[in-house]
């Protein structure tokens, strides 16, 4: 495998069968022969509408689902924190309400990946550092809070802190800002960009919002109905895309721009 590749997805398909009581429901093809490589240190944006299979792709990489056909190969990585030479992949979910257990304090939540991985001996300072790095300061005032007392943006920061604490090689962010206010979402995107600059971590950013993807990504893949319809660098996608669907996405993102067109003369 190429040295610069972190993950290589090869002709992966995934079909969901729905079992009915008397007859089988029609199959849903979530992914249809998808091939994609994730390069080391890049931010790869995956854009698609709901039902396009973008979340399924993330789940396959995370190992939460098994591919129906095709395979996903990981690069060998020299990383002390990884046991089997496979890169560590972490995740930030869309819904910061559902992804943080409401029975745990912020400290327990952030410490969890460490506790799972090396049971007892981990440095408590790492929790403090992780929370500081996501801007939850003063740290002491947050450590013993429960997630339901935090705002949506703060919860998403906790989610980022706990994803970062094991120093993963890659983070899959599945619609991390779609449930947040626009201005708070920008802060989360900036935080992710800072993380990438500081640690060189690879991001896979799954979203339905082309503006957000264009803001953060180096390369962008556009998905529709389980297929990748267009892949290219940010510049390529924004300035000369070929696929109709990408064009319609760009149009919907730009008609809101007030200084070029007003609504009526669209």
């Amino acid at each position: 495998m190429d040295n610069s590749c972190l993950i290589k997805i090869d002709n992966v398909s995934k079909v969901f069968k729905r079992k009915g009581m008397f007859r089988n429901e029609p199959e849903v093809k979530a992914l249809d022969n998808v091939s994609l490589t994730v390069k080391k240190g890049e931010v790869l944006g995956i854009i698609g509408e709901s039902g396009s299979g973008k979340t399924t792709l993330g789940k396959l990489i995370l190992g939460l689902l098994k591919p129906g056909s095709g395979n996903i190969s990981f690069a060998d990585i020299d990383n002390s924190s990884s046991q089997n030479g496979k890169p560590i992949v972490q995740v930030i979910f869309q819904d910061p309400y559902d992804s943080l257990s409401h029975m745990m304090t912020v400290e327990q939540l952030v410490a969890e990946p460490c506790i799972i991985q090396n049971r007892k001996n981990f440095d408590r300072n790492r929790i403090v550092l992780a929370l500081e790095s996501v801007g939850l300061t003063p740290v002491e005032s947050f450590l013993h809070k429960y997630p339901h007392t935090l705002s949506g943006g703060q919860r998403q920061r906790v989610a980022i802190a706990r994803a970062m604490i094991t120093e993963p090689d890659m983070i899959i962010a599945d619609e991390p800002i779609s449930m947040l206010d626009a201005s708070i979402g920008v802060d989360i995107l900036n935080l992710m960009l800072d993380m990438k600059e500081r640690t060189g971590i690879t991001f896979m950013f799954i979203t339905h919002d082309i503006a957000a993807a264009a803001y953060i990504s180096d390369n962008i893949a556009v998905m529709k109905e389980g297929k990748i319809v267009e892949y290219g660098s940010r510049e390529q996608i924004i300035s000369d895309c070929c696929h109709e669907y990408t064009k319609s996405l760009l149009l919907s993102a730009s008609t809101g721009t007030f200084n070029n067109t007003s609504f009526d003369d669209k």
Partner: peptide
């Protein structure tokens, strides 16, 4: 002003947009 400035641009060159820091 800050709300307007936090709009994500659709541009080729990477730029940084500032959100509104702090909590409501």
């Amino acid at each position: 002003q800050k709300l307007l400035a936090s709009r994500l641009p659709l541009m080729c060159e990477p730029v940084r947009v500032k959100g509104i820091s702090g909590t409501p």
